[in-house]
Amino acid sequence: MKSILWIARREMGSFFYSPIFYVVTALFLFINSFMFVPALMFFSAQSLKATQFQQMGISLNPNEMVIEPSLANMGVILLFIIPILTMRSFAEERKNKTFSLLLSSPVHLRDIVAGKFLACLGVVAFMILLSSYTVLFVLALGQPEIGPILSGYLGVLLMMGCFIALGVFASSLTDNQIIAAAISFSLSLFMWIIGWAAESADSGVGIILNYFSLVSHLEPFTKGIIDTSDVAYYLSFIVFVLFFTYRVLDSRRWR
């Protein structure tokens, strides 16, 4: 455990030293705000109208109108951005021949994988935290429920954990960072869109596809429901992919 955190700490440090991190964070915050502002404007216009026509009994829900869509948007943006963060994990170590430092240390390979994963997760959590200033605007303009906001963020973080695991996995396959990013993006996108396929498939297959889709497990979180089965799905997805990463790295030593 100590070794995991030790590796994760160094890894996060190297993010904060690299220009990639700042570029990506700036990009993320910009696009995120860009998508948030219209939703907020729409909401404030509507709520203004609603106060004018209070007698009509319209009640506006800021959670549904602003928070939920902005969380979904954030997921899409991160789908594109996470591969750029995770692509270095193992590809760079191999390319620069630094991997032998970790491999010759008294640290289990699975701890190395876990450390790399946690570092990326920490960085993404930090980015999400920076972007959460948007919640303050919603708080200023309406009375959103706090519970669903918190659980929504938890859900997004879990889902991003899955993307990060896929990215770390992709990075273990190749020495080439660009290829790693491409594989990671394709895998994440695939896990995302099987939810769409689920909608058009017939019921039996649809249910299965829907179960495996990463997005379908996010919705309850944004509604304020933390279902253990959803949490378990995300966590087991992450553990499974990381285990696979471990196997890939271990088997590559034999060749």
Binding site: S3, W6, I7, R10, G13, S14, Y17, S18, N96, K97, T98, F99, S100, L101, L102, S104, S105, P106, V107
Partner: peptide
């Protein structure tokens, strides 16, 4: 172990890197 290509994180400062190696060991 000093491998053929020294395993050095190019973006790190010397003493931070050595402290990291120490922790790893």
């Amino acid at each position: 172990y000093l491998p053929e290509t020294p395993p050095l994180y190019q973006d790190m400062v010397v003493d931070k890197f050595l402290a990291f190696s120490a922790g790893l060991r």
